[in-house]
Structures are given as C-alpha cells and as structure tokens.
Write a protein that binds this DNA or RNA. Sequence first.
DNA 1: GAAGATTGATCGATCAATCTTT
DNA 2: AAAGATTGATCGATCAATCTTC
Lengths: 141, 141
Amino acid sequence: MSTRASGVELWSTWKRTHEVIRALVVNEVTAAAGLSEPDMTVLVRLHEAGGTLRQSELGAAMGWDRTRLSHQVTRMEKRGLLTRRRGDGVTVALAAAGRETIQAVLPTLGDAVRRHFLDKLGESDLDALRVILDRLTREGS
Amino acid sequence: MSTRASGVELWSTWKRTHEVIRALVVNEVTAAAGLSEPDMTVLVRLHEAGGTLRQSELGAAMGWDRTRLSHQVTRMEKRGLLTRRRGDGVTVALAAAGRETIQAVLPTLGDAVRRHFLDKLGESDLDALRVILDRLTREGS
DNA sequence: GAAGATTGATCGATCAATCTTT
DNA sequence: AAAGATTGATCGATCAATCTTC
C-alpha cells in the first residue's frame, strides 16, 4: 500500500532516466559513426548473433514490431549494410559494409556505455539491476 | 562476480526491457484515452507540478529538447489540452480539457504501471532501483 | 487461413536555421 | 549577445490494409 502513491512517480523517473542516458550514449556514437540509434541497435544485435538472424527473431530480440523492422531493414539494405533472403520467413544478414561498420563502432559504443552507464553504478548495483531487468521481463501479469 | 565484457549486453537488455514495458503500459493507456505517449508524459508532468510550468522547466523535467517540446505543445494547444502564455520565457498550463483528461486517465495509468512494472518487483528491488536511477542521473562523468 | 512480411499514409522526432526577448 | 522558442524540412515510428508463403 505504501508504494501506491509514488508508483507513477517512479515510473516517470525510470522513463526520464532512460531517456537522458540513452541520449548521451547515442549522441556520441552517431556523431562518430553516421549511424542512427536504430541502425546501431540492429547492427549490434545481428553482430551478437553471429551475423545472421531470421527477421522475426531479430524483431523479438529487440522488442520491435514487424512493420517497424521491415521499414528499418529496407532502409539499411538500400544503404548496403544488410542483405535480405527469402525462404520460410526472411533471413537478415550483415553485409560486408555492415560488418565493417559495427566493428569500427563497437569500441566507441563500449566506451560511451561505460562512462555514462556502467561507471556510475557499483558492482552491487549492477547485480541488482540484472535481477530487476530479469524480473520485469518474466511472464505472468 | 566479474562483469568484464558484458557491458554492452547489459546496456542492450536495459534498453529492450524499457521498450517492452513501456509498450505494454502505453498501449493500455492510449487505447483507453486516445492520447499518445508524449501527450500523456506532458499531462502527467504538468499535473504533478500543479498545472503550470515554464516551458523550459517542463522540458528539463522530461529530458526533452526545446524543439521537440515546442512542436508537441503546439499540437496539444491546437487540440485544446494546453494554453501557452508569453513573458520571460513561455509558461504552459493545463487547459480545462487537459485537466479533465489527465484526471480521467490517471487511474488507468496507475493500474497499468502497477501490473506491468511495480508488481513484478519486490520492495527491496524498488528501493534498489530508486538508488540506481538516482546514481545514473548524478553529475560527473 | 494463419503467421510473417510489406506497403502507403500519417503522425512524431530530429536537425538546421531563424526569430524573440531580455 | 545570449538564452529561449519557433519554423520548415527530413527522417523515423506507427497504423491499417494488403500480400506472400506455408
């Protein structure tokens, strides 16, 4: 009962904090690489997956809906960052330019994430945050 | 334990979790109220401030830049949700329709936030999260 | 026909340039 | 001149409708 009144306030703080930190990191990376945030998100996720994913799995991993991802992949395909291949759904892969780009940008991203995010938290905070994020994405509303 | 190379991974998880939870909450509220997420964010913040704020303070509280807020306020003013008044900067206030709307929607928002966010965390998680969000927004990089 | 994907239209976000007020 | 605000253009996100493949 005691957290009821402050619930929306914590929600607002969570959103605002995410927005501010995100902007700090994204501004550094996009300034350095000529990539938008969604470009980065897609490249990072594909890279983590080894370079190839089914489009539906890529979308699920990022929490994006189909339309948004379809438009985004279309744009990135036109710029030569990705390739699309049909057959039992669609498979998306890093093209050569995409592979080079993500490898060039990852150190910048890692550095920005460390300075604006990780370094502001202690080890116990990071552990606690992992637990919190895990609980938030568990099923059962 | 060590968090070595997983910094960007935690960053990705934080972003994805935020995106998913945000979508769950926002979809419920917008379906019920005919308001977009930015509409809601502005109305909630103004309501929390008593109904009136200077535009620059409103933007700072949400982490928005001037341009974004100016466009948003223009749209909401046209729909009769807000009023704008000049003089030593700009002062934004809830119009009658905005006041009625936010009061009608707050219970729905509170309910959605509780089910998709607060109820998934324990008391100690909530305390830890407050500390984490506070540290992330402290100055000094 | 159901799940996955695409398209076109509309609305929101961002960038660069400009205007206003102190 | 500097801070705050606005405007117009462009790019990204969202919605509804449609198409494809199994």
